[in-house]
């Protein structure tokens, strides 16, 4: 465990807790893409399969439980909660996320570390995580300006992945045989997807106006 990874995990934890808190307190999910939340639930479900078989550390198990619990409860809130669901803008959140899931699954069948169920699902979850933010970014483009909680959510998610890249660089130089192209490339692609969002996010911080994304 190094500082980059711990900071990355805590930033990731903060992103889901910020989101859960927002939905729970103001009982609204305006501006939040349900599709992205569903994709994240799938990412965690397919990656944390080993939760009950291999024990790595209390920290690891605890964080996996929190991520699984929070992502599924966010999906439940948006789909089922009688008040929250009314604020879900389903005719704006129209990104056909099956166009994301299937290519990731096919890619995982082609590129993986070992051809076993767990390894293929693990690769699938990495590819899916890289693109899971797309429906949310499309929704932000559509709804133009966003309230700053959603902006913070996307910002924290991007920061978590950027910190993980620093973690991989650190581990590459400190641990022998630490070469994992699948993880690195999908993590890099994911971070690049956030790059333009970061640009507009910092722009809006500078002139501290509402975050306006270009059409």
């Amino acid at each position: 465990m190094n500082i980059f990874r711990l900071a990355g995990d805590l930033t990731h934890l903060a992103s889901v807790l910020v989101l859960l808190l927002k939905i729970h307190t103001i009982k609204s999910c305006a501006g939040i893409s349900l599709k992205t939340q569903e994709l994240y639930a799938i990412v965690f479900a397919t990656r944390y399969l080993d939760l009950f078989t291999t024990y790595i550390s209390l920290y690891n198990t605890l964080m996996k439980l929190i991520f699984l619990g929070s992502s599924f409860s966010i999906v439940w809130y948006i789909r089922k909660h009688k008040i929250v669901r009314r604020s879900y803008d389903k005719d704006q959140d129209t990104f056909r996320h099956y166009f994301i899931v299937l290519p990731c699954f096919v890619l995982a069948l082609i590129i993986h570390e070992k051809f076993t169920v767990r390894e293929v699902l693990w690769a699938f979850s990495l590819y899916l995580e890289a693109v899971a933010i797309l429906p949310q970014l499309v929704l932000l483009q559509r709804t133009r300006n966003i309230d700053n909680l959603t902006g913070q959510y996307v910002f924290l998610l991007g920061a978590y992945r950027a910190l993980y890249i620093l973690n991989w660089i650190y581990r590459y130089f400190t641990e022998p045989h630490f070469v994992h192209w699948i993880t690195w490339i999908s993590g890099l692609v994911q971070t690049l997807l956030y790059a333009d969002f970061f640009y507009y996010y910092f722009q809006s911080m500078k002139n501290n106006g509402k975050l306006q994304l270009p059409a």
Binding site: D50, I56, R171, H177, F178, H180
Partner: peptide, 10 residues
């Protein structure tokens, strides 16, 4: 030496 994996990451 055991292959250092990213599987111990979240």
């Amino acid at each position: 030496v055991k292959e250092a994996s990213t599987k111990d990451e979240l």
